[in-house]
Amino acid sequence: MRFIKLLLLSAIVFGTMIFLISLLFPSRAIVERSGVIDAPIEKVYAQINNLSTWPEWNPWAAPDVAQKITFADKKEGKGASYTWSGMQREKPVSGTVIITESSPAKGVYYNLDFSRMKPMTGAFEIKPSADGKGTAIQWRLETKLGMLPWWKLRGFLADKLTGPQLETGLTKLRNLCEQK
């Protein structure tokens, strides 16, 4: 009986310590990647503003992830959206993307809801490159993690989990935009 009490007390103390330590962790995770595309800003904007082009370069809209994509009537600019579903690692996944703001001078901002994940806000910020010949682009995803320790721990892993996908997407976007 004494062993069970000690075990129960240890579990409560350990759980409380984990929760208290997690209060020191950030409550949001931000993953960013940037690059330069040797193409006019109008060409880059046309790709990121039109959701029907996303399956060509966006890793979450790729056919191996999003086997079924349903576009809304509006596919470009503010209010454009699509829903998708598919299988990833033998588990069903689904999501929704809605463009919340779009401007050739700033870029494209959107909301992303992904099954079994916290909602995210995303942004493609664009501006002329330093030499004026191309387009500087930054892709950013932000997730509000809340107070639960397991979500905050996932926030520490966000860059390792999501960063490579952003890099792959930007590389595909660059290759697509730089084609003559």
Rank of each mutant, 00 (worst) to 15 (best):
R2K: 15
R2H: 05
I4S: 15
K5W: 09
K5Q: 12
L8H: 03
L9C: 00
T16R: 07
I21M: 10
S22Q: 09
L23P: 04
A29G: 14
E32F: 05
R33Q: 03
R33Y: 04
G35I: 08
V36A: 02
A46L: 13
E56P: 02
N58K: 12
P63V: 06
P63R: 15
D64T: 14
V65W: 02
A66Y: 04
T70Q: 15
G77D: 09
Y82S: 10
T83S: 13
S85H: 02
G86C: 14
S94M: 10
G95M: 01
T100E: 07
E101W: 04
E101I: 06
A105I: 09
V108K: 13
D113M: 03
R116N: 03
M117L: 06
P119V: 11
T121R: 13
G122S: 07
G122L: 05
Q138E: 03
W139M: 10
T143D: 04
T143V: 09
M147P: 02
W150V: 01
W150G: 00
W151G: 02
W151M: 10
K152P: 09
K152S: 06
L153Y: 11
L153S: 09
R154S: 08
L161C: 00
Q165I: 12
K172M: 08
C177E: 12
E178T: 09
